[in-house]
Design a protein around this nucleic acid. Structure first.
Lengths: 135, 135
DNA sequence: GTAATATATGAACAGTTGTTCATACATCAA
DNA sequence: TTGATGTATGAACAACTGTTCATATATTAC
């Protein structure tokens, strides 16, 4: 629980130009806590990469692909049939999943067989499912 | 590893109108496997909810909020200062996070103090981090 | 009551995203 | 070689998203 400082102990926002401060002019309701958290902030590059990964998972078409690939190694055609999509749409999405290292594939003649890239991906799916199905 | 059926055993796609079949006319490279996976498909509503949740996590601003809220209970002002955002932007994003039950809040006078809604959220963040930071 | 202020929200705008269509590439059969 | 076919990709378009600005609501101090 936060300890509210008295009004005179509050500080106005130092980093933002005046025009961007909005209406709230108090910086630290709990200065110590805010500074503690500030120290632990992850680098922007890490957060951005993480956001990109979640963004890629944040599409129902791609999520279905992730799910069916957690069940079996499948080719583009099979995924398209399973999900009622064109091969083109599937191929486009698979490239996005590949770029984020969420799936990998092996070529066998004309066919390309896809699987999940590593165990974290399935864990993410399952943990997300727990959140959604809870309550 | 998939067992390729002979060409004569393949079947053309039954569900899509001809115009949407793309160039690939083979439905089942491994019919048995595809049918097995089809049985286990999650309901669309579940997948859609899950996609919505990941979508909400797929934005670096919101992800930073999730992270700082995993460290401490914070008010709108503190989050805005920590992340260099306007209060308005923070409030908008917090509403989105609230709608997906990713954060919850308590009101104390004028202030609104936010925390993560449940443990799954932090687990998702950490598991995602593991994927990103790996290798 | 009025003024100050912490938070919330609607509208609007620029930027991004997913699909489709056409086409290219790659492999195999004949 | 030629044609068939499984996959990949560029362009274009509609649909969606995050921020900003203005404004509204709610609480506190006076």
């Amino acid at each position: 629980m936060p300890v509210l400082l008295k009004a005179k102990e509050n500080e106005t926002k130092p980093d933002l130009p005046v025009g961007q401060r909005g209406t709230c002019e108090i910086t630290f309701v709990n200065r110590k806590k805010v500074e503690e958290v500030k120290k632990r902030l992850k680098p922007d590059s890490t957060i951005n990469q993480l956001a990109e990964s979640f963004k890629v998972l944040g599409d129902s078409t791609r999520l279905k692909m992730i799910y069916v690939l957690s069940q079996a190694e499948l080719c583009v055609c099979d995924i398209a049939t399973l999900l009622g999509l064109t091969d083109s749409a599937v191929s486009h999405q698979l490239r996005i999943l590949r770029n984020m290292r969420l799936v990998k594939y092996r070529k066998d003649g004309k066919m390309a067989y896809y699987t999940l890239d590593d165990g974290h991906i399935e864990n993410l799916f399952k943990e997300g499912l727990r959140h959604v199905e809870e309550k």
